[in-house]
């Protein structure tokens, strides 16, 4: 970090980017802040409410339960996707045409529009026309995601695992490719077990990419919207209504601008807090690495 040149003219290089992102980020954010402290009746009539909406939102039971579900969901998929992704990365072949073919197949789910992912799983899991729903029924399990909250939950988790495990797998795969062959040779000479090779050679090399992967996965799972919206519509009841959808319902269907703006800010702050923790972790890790190398 210290070998960078101190030069404030670098701001000129940043400026175009800054203007564009500010246009897309700061103006809308300020609008949200503006709404969150007012009670808007129509274009002319509005009252300043201060922190009223924030207090109301924090005490709102539907939002509290949506928040709880959101955390449960994010933690569940992280607990499944991270080990599974590492496992797949270890299994993927390193050379030859199979490597390319498997790479393309594994990447495929990442490049499908999110609502199409929802449609694919909707088609796949329907009891009458879907392969999975039909098979489960033939096996004697009364599978129904529109009736049973448990079925809906499990299906959404499986869908997310299907959709996003490739990201972790590819990150780890590229992390593994960066390990020099000499390390493995040394391990072979020491007669290290498969587990020891993983624990002391592969895993340390993977920490960097894993932190990135976990950060990206946490963020995206925390704003999941399109897939459950298409698959279950948030139901049955509100058992699969996650934060984004609860927010969208409030903002567009009920048109409660003030409360939903307050809710948006709370939502944003939670993500910000978690991201800050991750960011600090990444920065500290990079610093440790530099100090250790020097």
């Amino acid at each position: 970090m210290n070998n960078k040149v101190r030069n404030n003219k670098a701001w000129w290089l940043i400026l175009p980017m800054l203007l564009l992102v500010a246009f897309s980020a700061i103006i809308p954010l300020m609008t949200v802040v503006n709404y969150s402290v007012q009670d808007v009746f129509d274009a002319q009539t509005r009252y300043f409410t201060g922190t009223e909406w924030f207090v109301q939102m924090l005490n709102d039971p539907t939002l509290q339960s949506a928040l709880g579900r959101q955390f449960a969901f994010s933690l569940t998929i992280l607990a499944i996707e991270v080990p599974l992704g590492i496992g797949i990365a270890l299994l993927m072949p390193k050379k030859g045409w199979q490597a390319s073919a498997i790479l393309i197949l594994v990447t495929l789910p990442l490049l499908i529009p999110w609502n199409v992912v929802g449609s694919i799983w909707q088609i796949f899991t329907r009891g009458d026309i879907g392969l999975m729903g039909w098979s489960l029924r033939e096996l004697g399990y009364s599978y129904n995601i529109t009736r049973s909250p448990l079925d809906a939950w499990i299906t959404i988790v499986i869908m997310d695992v299907w959709h996003w495990t490739p990201l972790i797998a590819l990150l780890c795969y590229s992390g593994l490719r960066a390990i020099p062959e000499a390390y493995y040779q040394a391990a072979r000479i020491d007669r290290a077990s498969r587990w020891a090779i993983f624990r002391y050679i592969q895993l340390p090399k993977l920490t960097n990419v894993l932190v990135i992967g976990i950060l990206l996965r946490f963020m995206h799972s925390f704003m999941i919207y399109a897939e459950p919206f298409v698959l279950t519509g948030g139901g049955p009841g509100s058992s699969t209504t996650f934060l984004s959808q609860a927010l969208a319902i409030m903002a567009t269907a009920q048109f409660d601008v003030g409360p939903s703006a307050a809710f948006s800010l709370i939502y944003f702050l939670i993500i910000l807090l978690v991201s800050w923790v991750f960011y600090t972790a990444i920065m500290n890790m990079q610093k440790d690495k530099k100090d250790g190398g020097a």
């Binding site: 960078k4 040149v5 404030n8 949200v32 704003m223 934060l243 567009t252 948006s264 910000l272 800050w276």
Partner: peptide, 28 residues
């Protein structure tokens, strides 16, 4: 390549935009 006033804060601010849920910004 460069160190300049506010570089670290700016970088973190950039990353927070990566994390902004689109649902928050729909209406604005």
């Amino acid at each position: 390549r460069y160190q300049f006033i506010g570089d670290k804060h700016l970088f973190f601010w950039l990353l927070t935009n990566l994390m902004a849920p689109p649902a928050v910004f729909l209406l604005p």
